[in-house]
C-alpha cells in the first residue's frame, strides 16, 4: 500500500529534476558581441561630397569677395581676363579692399544647388550614424540588466525564490494552499506541467502524510529585461512520510523563465539543468 504512494511521490519530485534533458543556458550570449561599426563605404559618399565642395570653393573663391557674388556666374572671373583684360584689372583693383571689410565665410560651395547637396549629404551621413547607433544600442550588452540594475535583479531573484519555495512545499493538510500558490505564481507551460504532476501528489499526500519542504540555496540571474528574466536556481528538497524523513536531501537545479505580468513576476517555464 505504501509502495504506490512512494512511487508517486518520488515520481513528482524526480520528474522535476529529470523531465527535460539539460540544456546549456547560454542563449543570451547572442547579445554579447557588439555590431561592427559602420564600414568606410558609408562615408565614401561624404568624402566625395567634401572633395566636391573644396573644388567649388576654389573655383568660386574670387566671388566670395565680389559685391553680389550669388548672382554672378561661377566661371566668370576665370573667363573674364581672356575676353576683356581691361575690365578684369579694373574689377581686381576695385575688389582689393573688400576682403578686410567682410567677415570671411567658411570655404563652402557657393552654388545654391551644391550647397543643398552638401547639406543633404551631411544630413544623410548623420542619419546613417544615428541608425547605426540605435542598432548598436539594441545589441549592447547593457540591454541585459542582470546585475547592472541591482534593484531589479534583487526583485526578480526574491520573487522567483519565494515562488519556488511555495509551489514545491506542501503538507498533507494543506495541499490546497500549495495549489493556490501555484495558480498565483505560475503561468503558461510551467502551470500546465505543474497541474499534471500535482494532481497525483494531492491524492497521495493526506493518506500517507507526505510533506515536501523546498529551500532555495543559490539564485543567479542570467538575463533580465523590463518584463522577462532567466534565472538559475539551486534548490534543496526534503520530504517526510508519516512524520519521518524520507530519504536524504535532494539537490535540484532549475533553469527558470519568468515574465512580469501585471506587476508580478510569474514563472512561465521550468527546466532541469
Amino acid at each position: 500500500m505504501n509502495t504506490t504512494g512512494e512511487d508517486q511521490e518520488q515520481h513528482f519530485r524526480v520528474r522535476w529534476d529529470h523531465t527535460e534533458p539539460p540544456e546549456p543556458a547560454d542563449g543570451y550570449e547572442d547579445h554579447t558581441e557588439a555590431e561592427e561599426p559602420a564600414g568606410p563605404a558609408e562615408f565614401e559618399e561624404l568624402e566625395e561630397a567634401e572633395a566636391e565642395a573644396e573644388e567649388f570653393a576654389e573655383a568660386g573663391e574670387p566671388e566670395e569677395f565680389a559685391a553680389v557674388p550669388a548672382e554672378r556666374p561661377r566661371r566668370a572671373p576665370r573667363q573674364a581676363p581672356r575676353r576683356a583684360p581691361r575690365r578684369a584689372s579694373r574689377t581686381r583693383r576695385a575688389r582689393r579692399p573688400a576682403p578686410r571689410l567682410r567677415v570671411p565665410l567658411p570655404r563652402v560651395p557657393t552654388g545654391p544647388v551644391a550647397q543643398l547637396v552638401l547639406a543633404a549629404v551631411i544630413a544623410l551621413a548623420a542619419v546613417v550614424l544615428l541608425v547605426q547607433a540605435g542598432q548598436q544600442r539594441e545589441t549592447s550588452p547593457a540591454v541585459n540588466r542582470a546585475l547592472l540594475d541591482d534593484a531589479a535583479t534583487t526583485r526578480v531573484t526574491d520573487s522567483v525564490g519565494d515562488a519556488l519555495t511555495r509551489i514545491f512545499s506542501y503538507s498533507p493538510t494543506d495541499t490546497a494552499a500549495t495549489e493556490r500558490a501555484a495558480a498565483e505564481v505560475l503561468s503558461g507551460r510551467a502551470a500546465e506541467q505543474y497541474r499534471r504532476l500535482f494532481g497525483q501528489v494531492k491524492q497521495q499526500a493526506p493518506a500517507q502524510r507526505l510533506t515536501l519542504t523546498t529551500r532555495v540555496v543559490r539564485t543567479g540571474v542570467t538575463d533580465l529585461s523590463a518584463d522577462t528574466a532567466q534565472l538559475l536556481v539551486f534548490l534543496d528538497q526534503v520530504s517526510t512520510r508519516n512524520g519521518r524523513p524520507n530519504g536524504t536531501v535532494a539537490a535540484a537545479q532549475l533553469s527558470v523563465t519568468a515574465k512580469l505580468m501585471d506587476g508580478r513576476w510569474k514563472i512561465t517555464d521550468l527546466r532541469s539543468s
Binding site: A38, L105, L116, L129, Q132, A133
Partner: peptide, 27 residues
C-alpha cells in the same frame, strides 16, 4: 540666398556631430 546654404550646411554638420556623439556613446 547668400546665407541659406551655409546655414543649412551648418545645421547638417551639427546633426552629424550629434549623431557621432550618439554613436560613440552607444558603444
Amino acid at each position: 540666398r547668400r546665407y541659406a546654404g551655409p546655414v543649412l550646411i551648418g545645421l547638417a554638420a551639427l546633426l552629424l556631430a550629434w549623431a557621432g556623439w550618439s554613436y560613440w556613446q552607444a558603444g
